[in-house]
Nucleic acid binder design. Structure first.
Lengths: 236, 236
DNA sequence: CGTCCGCTTGACGATCCTCAAGAGCCGTGG
DNA sequence: CCACGGCTCTTGAGGATCGTCAAGCGGACG
């Protein structure tokens, strides 16, 4: 107690994750109940309808949150990046499935113990509260996207979003390149489309010169202005 | 101070709204900064992009939260009913427009003063936190609806949702009747559809005998089982 | 070198949107 | 009280978008 765990001291997201709100003392309280866990691509941390027994901070990798209709149609309702909080601390039963899109590293806490620490540390609780509000805003933007944007706008907007949150290489002539953590089916599930429609929209963006695809899972943004147009205009 | 406001003592949502978490002492602190406000149908409390200067508890009526693309397409991202909390306490600028679907009565607080009280009263803060989490769950269910459900499923599901949250008359033969607080255009904005498609789906539900429409804005659920089928089956 | 898997492409069809007209409700005013 | 005009809602026809089904391409890997 009182001594910051070595894992925390060297943690890559020490000052982006919730932990940033904690003093060294508090951090050790949290560190005491946390353990590191790795998820391989495709593995799930928790299933919708199953027990909500853990929460976590995401250290590295990308995690998807999905819901499904009872006849199997799936919708990805959000993506989580390093530093983001994972889980549903106040729910006994999970309403979402949390699955790893890439190999991922998490700092996992038993849910009930985590809730206990939340109750004792107001700054921690407050920070999570604020983040939840931000998540709501994001969710509502996603609703506008799903309900009112065309396939072209969805794909272009999604690529822009990814370029803002993913590690990118910036080329000499201003070309930004990044690796997609999702395959086409998963992109389709994020956007409420089908694999084929996503594929067609990507080739369309290639044809107009907005992007290039050096590899299946590589996106190079050649003309960000053009991409922005496609993300926002009704017909472009 | 220390004396519960008369408005609070007689408040219709005293034990459903956030206030339920407060002792009499705390309640008076909140009551001191609150004032009653009426909105006529169509009036807005706050605009997206404008200043977020107030929060409120909804006493009576129904309020819609909307977002829009910059070329004017609109999406309703949530509805608020009596007892629900209204506003974005931590945002300086509103990201949503809050508009009254029916005449509404609110208990309004200046945002900054409200945040101050939040910080001083942990139970209040905690309750709002939990409600925000619940709102996130609702938002995600709505995403599944927008992204993956057909027009028929959307309309049927929406009518069921309303029948659960709106005051209803229950008939002798088990027919449930309620008044729509929204016109067809607003229903379309909730569901990510057009007026015409909503209208067609409603007449379809009438034709199969699931519902009846005694008036423009009146829905009578004649066969809830049938309605549930349409809300969930891919083709029914 | 051949197979597998994910992606692309094409043709077709269903769903939903667009445009346009018509029907029903309601307040207003004669 | 009824006629009128202005709504919203309904209904129809036609078309665009996106989904479905099916085939072909191409890289990864044994």
């Amino acid at each position: 107690m009182g001594i910051v765990d070595e894992r925390c001291a060297t943690c890559l997201v020490r000052d982006q994750a919730l932990c940033a709100s904690l003093s060294d003392d508090e951090l050790s309280a949290l560190g005491d109940i946390g353990r590191t866990r790795f998820l391989a691509r495709g593995q799930a941390l928790m299933w919708a309808g199953g027990e909500s027994d853990v929460c976590a901070n995401l250290i590295s990798g990308v995690i998807q949150m999905t819901v499904a209709t009872n006849d199997g149609r799936e919708q990805i309702v959000g993506l989580l990046f390093p530093g983001d909080f994972v889980g549903q601390p106040f729910a006994a039963e999970a309403s979402l499935t949390f699955g790893a899109l890439t190999d991922a590293q998490l700092c996992v806490y038993p849910r009930k113990a985590f809730v206990g620490i939340l109750a004792e540390h107001a700054p921690l609780e407050r920070l999570l509260f604020h983040r939840t509000m931000a998540a709501l805003d994001e969710a509502r933007a996603r609703m506008l996207m799903l309900g009112r944007r065309s396939a072209g706008e969805k794909v272009a907007g999604f690529l822009i979003e990814l370029s803002e949150r993913l590690p990118c290489r910036r080329d000499l002539d201003g070309v930004t390149t990044f690796e997609l953590p999702l395959d086409r089916a998963q992109i389709a599930d994020v956007l409420g489309l089908t694999i084929e429609t996503v594929s067609r929209q990507i080739t369309k963006l290639k044809d107009v010169g907005a992007i290039a695809t050096p590899g299946r899972r590589t996106i190079a943004v050649r003309d960000m202005g053009l991409l922005l147009n496609h993300a926002d205009a009704a017909h472009a």
